[in-house]
Computed example of a mutant assay.
Amino acid sequence: MGFHMSKSDNSLFVLHNIGVTIYVLIYVDDIILTGSNEVLLQQVVTSLSKTFSLKYLGLLHYFLGIEVHRDDDGLFLSQSKYIQEVLHDTKMQDCKGIHLPMSTSAPLLVDDGAPKTDGTEYRSVLGKLQYLSLTRPDIIYAVNKLTQFNTFPSVAHWQAVKRLLRYLKETFLSILSTDLATFSYTKLGDINDRRSISGYIIFLGITPISWCSRKQPTVSRCSTEAEYRAVASALNPGNSGVKMVVQGTIYGTSLTELLSCRFPLLLHQTLVLAIADHSHATCTVAASGAAVAVSAASIPTHDSLIRFS
């Protein structure tokens, strides 16, 4: 039929045919079929029905615990029903909700001196919460932090899991922001090897979803080049050679790095310049082989959410 298996997911098959794209997602005996041409979609269904016994269920509304709602802007994915099932399984359906997923004052320790708890139930609940994080990126950090104690969880760790469940009880009907914002920062020239350090943190709404701090592979000839490398690294966080499509805003603390994104030739003409922190620019950035539609803005250093000591 001409379908090719996706490199990112072995269950996803893609067909490109003269400007038309068809996607087929298969999970055991469930199939999702979508594409840009109704006639070709029907031909695919007809062809599959000649080999397999198919039952057409109509428009997609629910799939593997994920609810699909339609409006004028497109599709909205939700797991509110799944959250209610998790709360019921843990007998937390009547708990009092809270607005923060984790405590900011009580650190979690491997050996906190608290009695141990049932590790089987602990791991089971966290497994469900990991699946929930597909549509709730605001709990990714909390879930990943709590899974660090899977081997010998204590009562304190279980209390942290129950706190996360209380947060879900409070927010299970919330609509999360999909605004993407990246903060980029550069620490210039290490005193020993002269290589600068790049850092970035990426937010989806108010939730950090990716962050990194590392030395640049080569020595930069000026501060602007080092800052430009930091922006490029932030726009391609995977650094895997795979082309990415990124939309959002990237914030830096120097106007020169943002201008260099728009006019790369400036890299050959710019020395270390003193630029006022409150400068502002907007441009389209293309870096690291990524397909990018990003507005870039300069912010005061003290407003940056990333800093090096």
Rank of each mutant, 00 (worst) to 15 (best):
M1T: 14
N10C: 13
H16A: 10
N17L: 14
I18N: 14
I22K: 04
L25F: 10
S36F: 09
L40A: 09
L41G: 12
Q42K: 14
L48G: 05
S49A: 15
K50E: 14
T51Y: 04
T51G: 01
S53L: 10
S53C: 12
S53K: 15
K55Q: 11
L59S: 15
H61F: 12
Y62P: 08
F63H: 07
F63L: 07
G65H: 06
I66R: 05
Q79M: 07
Q84S: 15
L87R: 06
D89A: 15
K91N: 15
Q93D: 14
D94A: 13
K96L: 06
K96H: 12
K96Q: 12
L100A: 11
P101M: 03
S103K: 06
S105D: 11
S105P: 00
S105Q: 11
L108H: 02
G113I: 07
Y122L: 05
V125A: 10
L129G: 09
Q130H: 13
T135Q: 07
R136M: 10
R136N: 08
R136A: 06
D138P: 07
I140K: 03
I140V: 15
A142G: 05
A142L: 02
T151W: 01
T151E: 10
P153K: 02
S154E: 03
H157N: 01
W158R: 06
W158T: 08
W158C: 01
R163W: 00
R166N: 04
E170P: 00
F172V: 08
L173D: 11
L176T: 05
S177H: 07
D179Y: 05
F183Y: 15
F183P: 00
L188C: 05
I191M: 03
I191E: 02
D193K: 04
S196T: 03
S198T: 13
I202M: 09
I209A: 06
S210K: 02
W211V: 04
C212N: 07
K215Q: 10
R221T: 11
T224H: 01
E225A: 10
E225L: 03
A226N: 02
Y228W: 11
R229C: 09
V231L: 12
A234D: 00
A234E: 02
G238K: 08
N239F: 01
N239R: 06
S240V: 08
V246S: 05
G248L: 03
Y251C: 06
Y251G: 07
L255H: 00
E257K: 09
L259S: 01
S260T: 15
R262K: 14
F263K: 10
P264G: 11
I275V: 15
A276N: 08
D277V: 07
D277R: 12
S279N: 12
V285N: 07
S288H: 11
S288M: 10
S298L: 00
P300Q: 11
P300Y: 11
H302E: 11
D303V: 08
F308T: 00
F308H: 03
S309Y: 03
